[in-house]
Design a protein around this nucleic acid. Structure first.
Length: 431
RNA sequence: UCCGGUGUAGCUCAAUCGGCAGAGCGGGUGGCUGUUAACCACUAGGUUGUAGGUUCGAGUCCUACCACCGGAGCCA
């Protein structure tokens, strides 16, 4: 193939002859003049094909180009205010690579079911493209954050012999002659790893066989889960808000164009700076009651409750000290008030719900053992986990951030299914 | 799993009281030297989700099923 110039870099080549390779995003024309919006994955540029500037055959061939046909265009880059992006390419030579069949996604509106059936093609559309570019940046920023703070990436297994929490439904697989389950969290393994490396994180897919059917749920989603030895709840919260600030800052710095494509209100994101508000569960309950919500004491918050609380703050709010009864068995209890857990949920603003859940872990062997028994969990499967409390147990804490929920919030998307390339939901396994 | 909704051309949707199946976009053909979701003319395109029922007659009414959408619970 001819050496290729990417559209993202096109301004550097004004006045020069380049070859751009890509796909037809849209085509208009007027008689002897054709305008082809050419998309190459890095950007879109208007290509001008004038009958007098190319051969008869080339012009005739270009008239037959359909949406998403692939081609290489060689010509001079010119600045032109009439073109979107400010530059256009005056075609001299066009090499058609493939004429696309009738492309199903037109520039008009479509229903969500149709678009999801065509997700493999929908990825080419500008908004979907922007969301996934930002997703990439969020993941990169999160990893940069931990890497720069001395964390070690220690990936957790996907196949697990048991439930991490014992409560959520798991996807069961046939693992040779036994059963294995797809992981729903890497946390327990990170606790073991933290005792080996001090500061660790994992980043991988997690699976929940819950029949959840909301705009915030996927059956397969990605989590980044740090875990730190000799860390308490307060330090855990410091880390979480620092990470979120870093990620949002990185997206604002690197993905302005994409945020604009998504029509995201940037001022809202610019306000995401430390410190974030921190409230206790009891204060949150009081807020709900003051707002007139129908709330049962010692219950967990529902989606509507989270929205009411989050709307009181312009930044993500961290809620701590939930009733231990509604939280997982490994949460450490507050010594001051043993019916409360040393846990934290971070609720994103604008009603996007919980993006982070975490807390300090129970580090006493016997208390943890009691918790396992109370939850009717198979003790044999958790022996290795109890070992962490037998050999140099220390206070430790961590959290998990759901990547897709963070992407949905930062991108201002109303539904999580657009924040992962190929979403898996209760009703969708294809494409 | 529960509650509510939708299903008509490739796509987005109309179709009055139960009375001839329609439009825009997209496709095709022709025209146009500055288009931005171009415009103009012509044209092709239908098992009305599936199966049954009521009726002289069903896209429309009834029953069941299927698919999907929105919400709840659970969670990140």
């Amino acid at each position: 193939m001819a050496p290729q110039t990417y559209i993202a870099d096109i301004a550097e080549f004004a006045g020069k002859k380049v070859t751009v390779a890509g796909w037809v995003y849209n085509k208009t024309g007027k008689g002897k003049l054709l305008f082809i919006l050419l998309r190459d994955g890095t950007g879109i540029i208007q290509t001008v094909i004038f009958k007098g500037n190319v051969s008869e055959e080339t012009f005739a061939a270009c008239e037959n180009l359909t949406q998403e046909s692939s081609l290489q265009v060689t010509g001079v880059v010119t600045a032109d205010a009439r073109a979107k992006g400010g530059y256009e390419l005056q075609a001299e030579h066009v090499e058609i690579v493939h004429i696309a069949a009738d492309y199903p996604i037109s520039p008009k509106e479509h229903g969500i079911d149709f678009l999801m059936d065509n997700r493999h093609l929908w990825l080419r559309s500008s908004k979907q493209h922007a969301v996934l570019k930002i997703r990439h940046d969020i993941i990169k920023a999160a990893r940069n954050f931990f890497d720069s703070q001395g964390f070690t990436l220690v990936d957790a297994p996907i196949f697990t012999p048991n439930s991490c929490e014992g409560t959520t439904t798991l996807f069961e697989t046939n693992y040779f002659d036994t059963k294995a389950y797809l992981t729903q969290s890497g946390q327990l393994y990170m606790e073991a790893a933290a005792m080996a490396f001090g500061k660790v994180y994992c980043f991988g897919p997690t699976f929940r066989a819950e029949k959840s059917k909301t705009r915030r749920h996927l059956t397969e989603f990605w989590m980044i889960e740090p875990e730190v030895a000799f860390f308490d709840l307060q330090q855990d919260m410091d880390l979480a808000e620092h990470m979120v600030e870093f990620i949002v800052g990185s997206v604002l710095e690197n993905r302005r164009d994409e945020l604009e494509v998504l029509e995201r209100d940037i001022s809202v994101l610019e306000n995401i700076t430390r410190p974030f508000p921190r409230i206790r569960y009891d204060e949150a309950v009081q807020m709900l009651k003051d707002a007139g919500a129908d709330f049962k004491d010692d219950d967990d918050f529902g989606a509507a409750d989270e929205t009411i609380i989050s709307e009181k703050f312009a930044k993500p709010v961290m809620i701590t000290h939930y009733p231990a009864a509604v939280k997982a068995f490994y949460m450490k209890r507050d010594p001051q008030r043993p019916d409360r857990a040393l846990c934290v949920d971070m609720i994103a603003p604008e009603g996007y719900g919980e993006i982070i859940g975490g807390g300090q872990r129970e580090d006493d062997h016997d208390v943890l053992l009691q918790g396992l028994k109370k939850h009717n969990l198979p003790l044999e499967a958790f022996q290795w986990y109890l070992d962490i409390r037998k050999y140099g147990s220390v206070p430790h804490a961590g959290f998990g951030m759901g990547i897709e929920r963070a992407v949905a919030w930062i991108c201002g998307r109303s539904h999580i299914r657009e924040t992962i390339p190929f979403p898996r939901t209760m009703y969708r396994l294809n494409p």
